[in-house]
Amino acid sequence: MPGPKDLDPSSSPRALLGAELRHAREKKGLSQEALGLKLFVSGTFVGQLEAGTRRLRPDMAPLVDEVLGTNGFFERNCEAANKSRYPEHFAEAAEAEAQATAIRQYATLLIPGLLQTPGYARAVCRAYQPTAPEEKIEELVAARMERTRLLDNPTEPLLWAVIDEAALRRVTGGPEVMAEALRHIADLCRRGRAIVQVLPFGAGAHAAMEGSIKLMDFEDAPPMVYFEGVGTGRLEDDPATVKHQRFTYELLTACALSPQKSLALIETMAQDYAHEEHP
């Protein structure tokens, strides 16, 4: 297994907990695999805890303290490390996303979060929570926009999205919002910050008709896949599962329009929405 990545403990409670776990494990003279056996998890999972791509569960923290002799440190600090701006079912995936070197995503019915504009994100959040106070909606939008800052880096992560045509045809927030959203995607593509393919209606049946897929690769940890439903989410690192979903994603890219044709379609649709707003 590759060596663990040096984290900045001051960057977040999660990074602090990961750094302390690595320090305590090494002080005990245990490998990741040996510690994993004592915690009833895999060595890979221990490595992900240390790298900050997985969260230490509150029910596991007392056992970590017992095995490593850390006098309750992990139990006391686990709650703070697990605080997040994101919904519980998505928090771990969002934190893993922030450390990924490559993200490959298939989106069925909405534009992926990393490609959204504030206006589009606001319309989505309001649809999810129609009775929420405006302050709550703006808080959710701000958290989503914070995620998009990953793309401010000119090289990493690689973002490759396959977007179902249905997501582009669904008028979310109105024609003006959609025109802005599609122009934003086109701009990211033209600047080389995203590869986007459209899966057209004409492709017919395909390998991921049951839901979305997000595959994430890391520099120093095994790849993971995230499955999301309505108010639910699951992060998986099982090698067989990840391999199967990667194959599914490859089938989707084969069925989708090329990046060049996808860009042309997205820009045409943006113009159509703009004309609809201003006839």
Results as ranks from 00 to 15, higher is better:
Arg190Ala: 12
Ile163Gln: 07
Ala274Met: 00
Val196Lys: 03
Arg85Lys: 08
Leu16Arg: 10
Gly29Asn: 11
His184Asp: 01
Lys38His: 13
Thr268Glu: 11
Ala107Phe: 08
Lys38Ser: 04
Arg76Gln: 15
Arg170Thr: 08
Leu16Cys: 00
Phe247Asn: 06
Thr70Trp: 02
Ala19Lys: 04
Asp164Glu: 10
Gly192Lys: 09
Val230Tyr: 07
Val41Ser: 04
Glu277Thr: 07
Met178Asp: 11
Leu109Glu: 14
Met178Ala: 09
Thr172Gln: 14
Thr232His: 08
Leu151Thr: 09
Leu215His: 10
Ala51Thr: 11
Glu176Pro: 00
Thr172Tyr: 09
Pro87Lys: 05
Leu252Gln: 11
Pro133Thr: 01
Ala81Asp: 05
Asp152Pro: 00
Leu63Val: 10
Ala205Leu: 12
Cys125Gln: 15
Asp152Glu: 15
Ile103Asp: 05
Tyr273Thr: 01
His275Cys: 01
Tyr128Lys: 04
His89Ser: 07
Asp238Lys: 00
Ala91Phe: 14
Ala15Lys: 01
Tyr128Asp: 10
Arg190Tyr: 06
Ser12Asp: 07
Ala208Cys: 04
Ala142Cys: 01
Pro130Ala: 04
Pro200Gly: 00
Ile111Asn: 03
Asp65Phe: 08
Asp187His: 10
Glu33Met: 06
Glu267Phe: 11
Pro118Arg: 07
Pro58Lys: 08
Ala274Ser: 14
Leu17Asp: 02
Phe74Pro: 02
Thr248Ile: 13
Glu250Arg: 12
Glu50Thr: 08
Gly18Phe: 13
Phe73Ile: 03
Gly229Asn: 00
Phe40Arg: 06
Ala93Lys: 03
Ile137Ala: 03
Tyr106Cys: 05
Ala264Met: 08
Ala91Arg: 06
Asp65Met: 06
Leu158His: 14
Val177Phe: 14
Glu250Gln: 15
Phe247Leu: 13
Val242Thr: 01
Leu168Ser: 00
Tyr120Trp: 02
Val177Pro: 13
Arg190Gln: 15
Pro133Ser: 00
Glu79Thr: 12
Thr117His: 05
Ala123Pro: 08
Ala254Pro: 04
Ala240Asn: 10
Leu63Ala: 01
Arg22Tyr: 08
Thr70Phe: 04
Pro87His: 10
Lys27Trp: 11
Arg170Tyr: 07
Tyr226Cys: 06
Ser42Glu: 06
Leu56Arg: 08
Glu26Ser: 10
Glu75Met: 08
Leu199Glu: 03
Cys78Ala: 13
Leu158Ser: 10
Val124Trp: 15
Ala121Tyr: 14
Leu251Lys: 15
Pro200Val: 03
Glu138Phe: 02
Arg22Cys: 12
His278Val: 03
Arg183Thr: 00
His275Ser: 05
Asn82Pro: 06
Arg57Ala: 14
Leu199Ile: 02
Cys78Glu: 13
Asp8Trp: 09
Gly47Cys: 04
Val171Gln: 13
Ile103Arg: 04
Ala179Gln: 09
Ala143Asp: 06
Thr70Val: 02
Lys5Ala: 06
Leu49Tyr: 15
Glu276Met: 13
Arg147Lys: 12
Ala98Val: 05
Ala19Phe: 04
Pro154Ile: 13
Thr172Glu: 07
Gly72Gln: 05
